[in-house]
Write a protein that binds this DNA or RNA. Structure first.
Lengths: 125, 125
DNA sequence: GCCCATTACGAAGTACGTAACGATA
DNA sequence: TATCGTTACGTACTTCGTAATGGGC
């Protein structure tokens, strides 16, 4: 089973392009970060970074993996926020995310009308 | 940060409606499973199950959480599979998921045409 | 000599299983 | 009494930080 922490570590290193700086941003040492990245690669059986001249750099596989990894982290963050929001709301709260254009197209308005009639808002990605 | 293992445990218990059976399916004991569920609830600050008469049953918050939890697990599984597929493929493989209707609408065909011209296929949920 | 990534090693935290407990039928 | 969920406790594993190692500039 995939570990979200490793994914977060991977994204940090990929974005920083540097293990040391990524470690600072994550508030951990270089050592465990380097190990977690290596472990992730071993568990997946993929080399995500090109190691050369004591530098790490995303390779083709790493770039492909990065896009989906970011999506997963965003999904996890939403789920966590959903949980916390469920705590505050009486029986649940209404959170509305929108995409540019969705408001003007009347999509959001229609969904809200339907919701008032007792309909259910479906989760839209 | 959310832990995928706890999410998987939660979904198992929610679907089984029973800690014991869920534990069997997960190949762990009842004890740690019960604790992980409680920890998840504590970390989120939400009660996901209604405890009554020595039984656990999803409450309203739990049901709302379950839907998104399943989505996250599916997303994680896709990411893991992507990683493993990147290992075998030369520089990456092409995997196509489709939704009923997308094929007949010509959406997939258009995307493939664009892809042949050197365009990029965007990830669609 | 300085910086960067990795490896070595000891300490702390966490998850597990077994066993005991409380409650329900 | 049998079953189910939770709590108690000891063990094993995993992750962390510090320190040492090996390569480039």
């Amino acid at each position: 089973m995939l570990d979200l922490r490793q994914i977060r570590y991977f994204v940090a290193v990929a974005e920083a392009g540097n293990v040391g700086r990524a470690a600072e941003q994550l508030h951990i040492s270089q050592s465990p970060l380097s190990r977690q990245i290596i472990q992730l690669e071993e568990q997946l059986g993929v080399t995500l970074f090109e190691r050369a001249k004591q530098r790490v750099h995303l390779n083709a596989e790493g770039r492909a993996f990065l896009a989906e990894a970011r999506a997963l982290l965003a999904n996890a963050a939403r789920l966590e926020e959903l949980g916390r929001s469920l705590a505050s709301g009486a029986t649940g709260s209404l959170a509305i995310g929108y995409v540019e254009g969705a408001v003007h197209s009347g999509l959001v308005a229609d969904m809200l009308k339907d919701f008032r009639r007792g309909g259910r808002i479906s989760i839209c990605n």
